[in-house]
Design a protein around this nucleic acid. Structure first.
Lengths: 199, 199
DNA sequence: GGCAAACCTGCAACGCGTTCTAGCGCTGGA
DNA sequence: TCCAGCGCTAGAACGCGTTGCAGGTTTGCC
């Protein structure tokens, strides 16, 4: 009687490794769905596991903490964003305009699912050492999005500029997620910063 | 027998209101001391209360959550920093140099008690709505420190520049506290940002 | 076929933030 | 002078992240 649920269901579905992948996917989906409803607090590990039809221990086998779980989901979102932006490159004459355009589009995506992103950002800014590499990864993706938008033109100190813009982006996201600043003023700040730093 | 501890001790110390203030102070001190030893995790509400010789309920009466407590401690530190900087104004010929100088000094202070500041930053970036005003407050103090350093000189878009520098500062602090970037590279990034943005 | 290792499941248990209860003493106003 | 109410204390209790345990099943290697 012990083993019925997931394994029974997926008995004929594929290889063991594929099932494991599917389980991890379900876990990320479940976390995202719960975050969409009630934000960070609503992402409760027992619920995530239940919704993904997976045992709690298995959840912890794949994602060693709640923050790791949410960061993995965030990394997935960031990658998706990057792909979408790759397909429709930024518009604008100058680098500053293009960067502002990209960041504005990104902000628009946030507004659609504010709770989700807030939950993930909460995980992002938790000061846990063990999540450092996940965070670095996400940060790299964000920077690459910016530097793609600058594109073509030669810009002095490009790396530094991108770093500063990445920092501003991150800070604005955190402020927004902390509740004092709406998405509009977030885009505005980013656009202003881009104008200050880029031709 | 129930009421002996704190009240007994402070029986002759002062007015009721003064005792309350003293208790709040002890709570902040206890939180800071525990943070100095073991960081965020070591700041356990029961321990804070015990060390301050105050009942747990009283701790919660004054600071309605662990994050509020740490943010109050952080606000106190920020105010102290500001005073110290007021007494010894920033050095440097240009605004950029002065800003870099101030931020470097601030970073130095962090290195002295890294765990404390990391614990407080963890609280700062937790996405809790109820702490928004405390965070805003701290942010205002940090910005005022920057804009004092720019001083005198007329700078275009001063407000925007200060906002960007504040954002970079915050982001760098978070990265540092997250474990990937040491205090030195934090000052460097800040100096570079100042140079990009200021004459 | 046999066996160890890797994965899962269900479930109990622990730690710590937070809340709640009951009771006591001081203080300020009627 | 008496009493309402606030601020405090001790301590129990609740919720949720996290860990541990005792099985079962699958897979890869001999």
């Amino acid at each position: 009687m012990a083993v019925t649920g997931a394994q029974g269901v997926s008995r004929r579905r594929g290889t063991r490794a594929a099932e494991t992948e599917a389980r991890k996917r379900r876990l990320l989906d479940a976390a995202t769905a719960l975050a969409a409803d009630g934000g960070y607090d609503a992402v409760q590990m027992r619920d995530v596991a239940a919704r993904a039809e997976v045992a709690l221990g298995t959840l912890y086998r794949h994602y060693s903490s709640k923050d790791q779980l949410l960061l993995a989901a965030l990394a997935h979102q960031a990658a998706t964003l990057r792909e979408r932006l790759d397909q429709r490159p930024a518009r604008g004459e100058t680098p500053a305009e293009r960067v502002a355009d990209v960041l504005r589009r990104a902000s628009r995506a946030l507004e659609r699912q504010p709770r989700v992103m807030r939950a993930m950002l909460t995980a992002m800014s938790a000061g846990d050492d063990t999540t450092a590499s996940a965070k670095l990864d996400i940060n790299t993706t964000l920077r690459s999005i910016i530097s793609d938008a600058v594109d073509g033109e030669r810009v002095d100190n490009l790396d530094d500029v991108v770093k500063v813009l990445g920092a501003v982006w991150f800070a604005e996201l955190t402020f927004w997620s902390g509740g004092f600043s709406d998405a509009t003023s977030m885009s505005d700040s980013l656009a202003r910063a881009a104008r200050l730093l880029l031709p």
